[in-house]
Design a protein around this nucleic acid. Structure first.
Lengths: 395, 395
DNA sequence: TAATTGTTAGACAACTTGCCAATCAGGAGG
DNA sequence: CCTCCTGATTGGCAAGTTGTCTAACAATTA
């Protein structure tokens, strides 16, 4: 595919990139390992490593012992070569949960700082909020501004990468056109924005049940709403204007037009779960409380989850018919609360409703999936930037 | 991305590949053109072209005149360097239309032969049928077996590339596991199989309204059934088992459970169109006849197409919610018969039903879209094989 | 002693720069 | 109108540069 042409300089750049790439996917590698991985000769590997260490990108972290001969040097990427930060922004809601969660990690992915705070975006400008949060992250972890190369923002809304604008956001101020470039400018780093559900899918791909899947669809059920993320071989499907997966607005077919227009949000959104809970006599003020209560009450649980699963299957059947994913992941606070009971219910409902069989699973991520996914996304952005920089600076 | 490493041989291979790739996307190029495209120096370009001509992959096709200096040689890819064939297989049906349409083209895409025939697969083994058809194509065009490097088969069914098996086929015999490798073995070429709708989308991408789209969804409405193809930046989304886009089986939500289970096929499949025609008093024995009759009868047409469009919008709304395509293409014989009237009706219906706005268009391909798409797909396979062969033979 | 690590030296392959001859278009002069 | 000169372009050749590979070697450890 890459119809790339060039001279020996390109060759060197490629070889360095390849070595760095192998060292980045968490590897403590000796020269011999790299020789096998890249099929380069010993002198070349030595030269490449010399350059990378000179650039402070990799360093010797240990020595291999126990085998005949000199102890081989073990190389690893320098954790402090670059950092990535992630900020997860969500609507405050009634729950009083923190509206901003942020973290910073080094090049190996180790988390160095985390902040949770309640910012009222009705009275705070998004740009200054982002700048302040990132500044505090840097302060707490002692990271200089120059070494922080990417900030990944996650927000509930669809991000139009072409227009660099966030659509369908509930959080005040974030819909303003031109905001993202402004933030990038103020931060002095690269800034990525993505849908929160998409970022949760990134986390699921790297650390969750999606690790070995060649693709999956992730249905996110939260207090506020629902969303879908589509992972195809590790890359996310975003759609023309970032609107892919906005299935909350998916209209449902009603044969007799006397019914008012129904969409999927009406079926499995927060309000719908509240109503469904009431119908089954389950107490709870929020959707999450209801699902938790149902999961803890085996008697009524079955009925409740069967009905909920039938509704979920309505949406998933359409998704499966269109995408044929090998795996469907249920995630988000509500789905996580439903746990195994919900999983078996949905599996059964899908077997009845969907023509193609897909494996269904519940997320295995306990931590804040959106934040972790944002960290992961930021990290890969940093790594690709490093590799590309090496490829270009010398070409 | 390609963390490729190597030595000078790789470099030469890459440069030759790059030059060939530029010559393949239909280009009559001089050395100077290639210099600008590849950023290589004159001696290198000369050497590369010398090798490519020695391999009979490219040749001088003319001379550039009118400018000062010697007339520059114009190079182009040798049309006879390799050939691709395409076979479109469809169920015979009641129409008596040919069940097999096949064509063969050279490396530039020029069609050299085309065959239409009626093969009754109840009494003919698919393998021998394919071999015979390809043999006749070769005979008519005078192409030797060694130069035919790829045969692309299109069939109404989902192809599982991993298991190399065709699922959900109506044509007898084609569902047999192991058939595709057998055909490839008998033909002695590479064989690709794909869904007919997917191939129509390939044609739409290369020669139709999808040419400049960064992605589109193509809804195929034919006499027999319906299908969806999803193009994302030029690559087709096939799903885990090739089942992506099988929206005929997409179940529709019926609020009151007294209704029997309805799927999209029941709404806009052939039978449904027949029934809809009857309801509107439109005569016709086949769905195509009905739509043609409706399109020719302005009085009842409006009503008919409005109702049909409403139903189409039901399916498309789900697709749009999941994928957010920038363009939706209506294709297939039925959609083509509906033409502009259907287009405006669907556009209106979608504006009412779908939350995201997508442009809708009708296919602009008059010829057999599936066959043309199969040719295109086969051609790109041949080209990529050529490029890869150059890249590998010398690496 | 044998195996392994990492360095050094020389050879090889491929690309680039710089130079040169050959070629063609256009304009000036006879 | 014909001829010749100028300028631009094409393509080839030689020398130089860059980068990798093979091979030999010193050093180290079980």
């Amino acid at each position: 595919m890459p119809r790339l042409a060039g001279s020996s300089k390109l060759l060197r750049a490629m070889n360095e990139s390849a070595a760095l790439a192998h060292l980045l996917e968490p590897g403590m590698l000796t020269r011999a390992d790299l020789r096998k991985l890249t099929a380069l000769s010993t002198p070349t590997i030595s030269e490449v490593l010399r350059r990378l260490t000179d650039a402070h990108l990799v360093s010797v972290v240990g020595y291999n012992s126990g085998r005949p001969g000199p102890n081989a040097e073990i190389y690893a990427v320098n954790p402090d070569a670059a950092y990535a930060a992630a900020v997860s922004v969500r609507d405050i809601g009634a729950s009083g949960a923190p509206s901003v969660v942020a973290a910073l990690c080094d090049l190996t992915g180790a988390e160095r700082a985390r902040i949770e705070s309640r910012i009222d975006f009705l009275h705070t400008d998004p740009k200054t909020a982002m700048v302040d949060v990132v500044a505090e992250l840097r302060e707490r972890s002692g990271v200089s501004a120059t070494r922080l190369s990417h900030v990944q923002i996650g927000v509930a809304g669809s991000y139009d990468g072409r227009a660099q604008t966030i659509h369908h956001v509930d959080v005040p101020g974030f819909g303003r056109p031109g905001l993202v470039p402004e933030i990038a400018d103020a931060l002095g780093t690269n800034v990525g924005v993505d849908n929160d559900v998409n970022l949760a899918a990134v986390a699921e791909r790297r650390r969750g049940v999606g690790r070995d899947a060649d693709g999956f669809a992730l249905l996110w059920l939260s207090q506020e709403g629902l969303g879908l993320a589509i992972d195809i071989g590790g890359t996310l499907l975003r759609g023309a204007r970032g609107g892919a997966g906005e299935i909350g607005y998916m209209p449902l077919y009603a044969p007799d037009s006397t019914h008012r227009k129904v969409d999927l949000q009406d079926l499995i959104g927060g309000e719908a779960i509240l109503a469904l809970g009431r119908d089954h006599g389950i107490a709870g003020r929020t959707p999450l409380e209801i699902v938790l209560a149902a999961a803890g009450d085996p008697e009524t649980a079955g009925e409740f989850f069967t009905h909920l699963a039938d509704r979920i299957a309505v949406g998933l059947a359409a998704v499966i018919a269109v995408l044929d994913p090998s795996l469907v992941v249920l995630a988000g606070p509500v789905a996580q609360a439903g746990g195994q009971i919900l999983l078996t219910a949905v599996t059964g409902a899908l077997r009845r409703a969907a023509p193609l069989e897909s494996t269904v699973a519940v997320t295995t991520i306990d931590d804040d999936a959106v934040l972790l996914g944002a960290l992961d996304a930021g990290l890969t952005a940093v790594r690709e930037a490093l590799i590309a920089a090496i490829r270009d600076n010398q070409a």
